[in-house]
Design a protein around this nucleic acid. Structure first.
Length: 574
RNA sequence: GGGCCGGUAGCUCAGUUAGGGAGAGCGUCCGGCUUUUAACCGGACGGUCGGGGGUUCGAAUCCCUCCCGGCCCGCCA
């Protein structure tokens, strides 16, 4: 065949979760696995699993993700782990042995200084908080050769990889971290590298279809300079028998800047360098035997087609089953660490349960979603509804079908799915409870509102109330309409005489012993008797108890508090 | 400019597998909880399913075309 360009045939489309991708794969596989891929699946991971099974891969099935260690392990990076996880779990449930790996592409050179970094706790810090000068001197070196800016791990790369691994642990996702640098150092890449350098003409012919810079001189191997430690780009000779190359450490163009080479001329083994990305990625597929890999939409039209080509025509392997996922936005804007529009897993886990976060990623990967922190309550509500649907409590056929399949995976209990629905406080109600500190009072309020069944065990109550801390953090973080806090000390006040008199009357009423409902009604009554605006009277109450102008339904709230405290506070005594 | 992927109510999203009733939650508005103050309950309002054309008895769903958004089409990853 003499096609002038690669033919993006349907069966190589990475969009297997789109209508078009599905249409294309029908005839291509011949007969499908016994399950048949004509079956409808409410959960996308089953569609992917069908696709993988149709290739009859050997166990263990290998699922991979990977990123280059930038400065911050943010939630977007987590796509690379958790989307593969759902597929891995589905395959395990179908009886396969699955190995999920994550490659830290840590032999890549640091090309520019990151503006933000994440410390060992996952908190975002500016470049100013670390030794930026030391980082700057390491431009051009592999991430694994750069010291950890926080001085804890053996390298910059190790620091970053540890962050992602910790995130995976927090969400209960077993993933095997693989250092790309180690793959080279251990010789795992030897065969791949030899294959590439043995057939330079063939490799160039393939690559030239995708990269303009590939000419007759181009050598797709980047040795590490033995003198200055930087990744170099100029190979002058190859010795296949000795498995070495000779190189000159020349300057490297990086965007508008240049990283200076040291001019050293030296020799490097195949293990002392790396392949460029377009070869390295399919090389990883070969070395690790990858059967499935999800990737962001930026790879869909760039490296994927070339990767398919390289896999088949350079390494002689079939590429893995691909899956393109859409990027999500954060608070309506693209994720950007330099712009500070970033959120990490630990940050998010202060605001919601792991299951809710897992649910977010269980939604269809092809939809661009917005993670809106201000309206996190909506996400949690959707999760709660999804959960109720699993237990057959929602009149929605489609949602129920999705929930029945996906819920056990979302809560990580495929083998022993819950049989009873957990008690869930509505998220915004949990935020209301967050206005008070006393756990007993929180429980009483929740019971009064009917959110906790009367026969609930202590364990159940505790589990339900755990959400209060999350919602409380959310209210504080967003400074939203639930960000009120019951004042233990008397706030500064400045009331008119008639307001003060009304407060005294209300204090007497409370002291006489009435429930919340009565207090609520009495507030209207008292305001009228003293000829003051109801709103003004409520404002006074909110000032006294929350040091604010607004708050929750006050009368019923006060009815739950310690009577002496309420009376004293209404009298401005304490 | 070309390719790919998206576009359903104010917001967040189901529904497209297999053509047949346009839906949910939230928000808004109105009402209830003995009389404005965010927790609870009920109801209503709200959409040319991005536009247009075609196939069909029938289209959010299939086909064509156009519009809008994102990504890719240098290097890097």
């Amino acid at each position: 065949m003499t096609d002038d360009r690669p033919d993006p045939a349907h069966d190589d489309s990475p969009h297997i979760l789109s209508a078009q991708g599905r249409e294309g794969d029908e005839g291509a596989d011949g007969d499908a696995a016994s399950g048949g891929d004509d079956d409808f699946h409410a959960f996308w991971a089953d569609v992917v699993a069908d696709e993988i099974e149709a290739r009859h891969p050997d166990d263990p099935i290998v699922i991979k993700g990977g990123v280059s260690p930038s400065g911050v392990a943010h939630l977007g990076n987590f796509n690379e782990i958790i989307r593969g996880y759902f597929v891995a779990e589905v395959l395990r449930e179908r009886g396969h042995e699955v190995r999920q790996v994550f490659t830290s592409d840590d032999k890549d050179p640091l090309r520019k200084l990151p503006r933000k970094l994440a410390n060992a706790d996952g908190e975002i810090v500016g470049l100013g908080e670390v030794d930026a000068g030391a980082l700057g001197r390491n431009l051009g070196k592999p991430y694994t050769s750069i010291p950890d800016p926080f001085g804890e791990r053996e390298s910059y790369a190790a620091h970053f990889a540890a962050l992602l691994k910790a995130d995976a642990d927090r969400l209960g996702i077993p993933v095997e971290m693989v250092s790309n640098t180690e793959l080279y150092a251990d010789g795992a890449f030897d065969d791949v590298t030899r294959t590439v350098l043995s057939d330079l003409d063939g490799v160039r012919e393939v690559l030239a279809q995708y990269q303009d810079k590939v000419d007759d001189e181009y050598v797709p191997f980047n040795p590490v300079c033995s003198e200055c430690g930087k990744i170099t780009e100029t190979v002058t000779a190859i010795d296949l028998d000795a498995e070495t190359v000779t190189y000159v450490c020349t300057d490297m163009d990086v965007g508008d800047n240049t990283i200076e080479g040291c001019g050293h001329e030296g020799t490097a083994t195949f293990r002392e360098g790396k392949l460029p990305w377009r070869l390295e990625w399919p090389g990883q597929w070969d070395v690790l035997g990858v059967d499935f890999e999800p990737f962001g939409k930026d790879h869909a039209e760039g490296s994927w087609p070339s990767g398919v080509d390289v896999a088949r025509n350079v390494f002689g392997i079939e590429p893995p089953v691909p899956m393109v996922y859409e990027w999500f936005t954060l608070n309506g804007a693209p994720l950007s660490s330099s712009a500070g529009n970033i959120v990490t897993v630990p940050e998010l886990l202060e605001l919601l349960e792991p299951a809710v976060l897992r649910y977010f990623f269980a939604l269809h990967p092809k939809k661009a979603r917005d993670l809106d922190i201000e309206r996190l309550d909506q996400l949690v509500d959707r999760f709660d509804r999804f959960e109720r649907a699993y237990f057959g409590e929602v009149d929605d056929e489609d949602l129920t079908a999705f929930a029945e399949r996906a819920y056990p995976f979302v809560v990580g209990r495929v083998d022993d799915p819950p049989t009873e629905p957990p008690v869930r406080l509505p998220y915004t109600f949990a935020a209301v409870l967050g206005m008070v500190d006393d756990p007993a009072l929180r429980e009483r309020l929740a019971r009064d509102e009917g959110h906790i069944p009367s026969d609930a065990s202590e364990t159940v109550v505790e589990a339900a109330l755990a959400r209060v801390e999350k919602a409380r953090n959310w209210a504080e973080r967003t400074a939203n309409e639930y960000d009120y806090r019951l004042q233990t000390d008397l706030p500064e006040t400045d009331f008119d005489d008639d307001v003060a008199a009304a407060l005294d009357d209300l204090a007497d009423f409370v002291a006489a012993g009435h429930d919340g409902e009565a207090i609520q009604a009495e507030m209207y009554e008292t305001a009228r008797e003293h000829d003051i605006e109801v709103s003004e009277f409520f404002s006074a109450g909110y000032r006294l108890f929350f040091d604010d102008t607004q708050g929750p339904r006050l009368g019923e709230f006060l009815g739950e508090l310690e009577r002496d405290y309420v009376v004293a506070r209404l009298r401005r005594e304490a």
